[in-house]
C-alpha cells in the first residue's frame, strides 16, 4: 500500500507492507539515527516524534503514520547538537548508543513540561534506558540544558 507523510518537513510518498514498522521506514529514508535497541518496546532508542508526540517507532506501524508528521533527530539537528554538547560537558556518555532516543525525548519533554523537577524529569525519561551509565551525568546535563540562558536557548 502507498502512504504519504511528512518526514522532517519533507513530503515522502512510498509503498509499505501491512507490517512495516515506522522504524524501518524512516531508516529506509535515510534517518539512521533511529535504531532498534530491544525487541520488547522497553529501551526508547527508537523514539521519534509523531505529530509532535514522542512514540516508539519500533512499535508503530508505518501504515498508521499515513498522513502524519514524523520528526527524527535528523530533523532537529541544531537542538540535538546543543543537547549533545551538554551531555559531553558532563561526560554523560560512554558508548553513546542511547543518546539519539534520549535526545528526542528530552526535546519532547521540553515542549510538554515547564520547569520540571528532577523527579518529573526522571519520570518523563524513564523509558530511555542506558546500559553503560547510572544516569547521573545525563541528569546533570539535562538540568544544565534546561537552565541554559541567552543565545544557547536558540542553539
Amino acid at each position: 500500500m502507498e502512504i504519504q507523510l511528512t518526514l522532517n518537513g519533507k513530503a515522502v510518498k512510498d509503498q509499505v507492507g501491512a507490517d512495516t514498522l515506522l522504524l524501518d521506514f524512516v531508516r529506509k529514508h535515510g534517518c539512521y539515527s533511529v535504531k532498534r535497541g530491544c525487541e520488547t518496546s522497553n529501551c526508547g532508542l527508537c523514539t521519534v516524534l509523531l505529530d509532535g508526540k514522542p512514540v516508539l517507532s519500533c512499535s508503530t506501524l508505518a501504515a498508521r503514520a499515513d498522513g502524519c508528521s514524523v520528526t527524527t533527530l535528523e530533523g532537529v539537528q541544531e537542538k540535538a547538537e546543543a543537547i549533545g554538547r551538554f551531555l559531553a560537558g558532563e561526560g554523560a556518555e560512554q558508548c553513546g548508543f542511547c543518546s539519539p532516543g534520549l535526545i528526542m525525548n528530552v526535546i519532547a519533554m521540553e515542549q510538554e513540561l515547564s520547569e520540571p523537577s528532577e523527579e518529573e524529569i526522571r519520570e518523563y525519561l524513564a523509558g530511555n534506558l542506558c546500559r553503560c551509565t547510572g544516569y547521573m551525568g545525563q541528569m546533570r546535563a539535562i538540568g544544565n540544558y534546561l537552565n541554559r540562558k541567552g543565545e544557547e536557548q536558540n542553539g
Binding site: 509523531l50 514522542p54 525525548n105 518523563y124 524513564a126 523509558g127
Partner: peptide, 12 residues
C-alpha cells in the same frame, strides 16, 4: 499509569 515503561510507550 505513570510507572508503565515510559512516556513514549504510554503514548502508544
Amino acid at each position: 499509569t505513570r510507572h508503565i515503561v515510559g512516556t513514549q510507550f504510554r503514548n502508544g
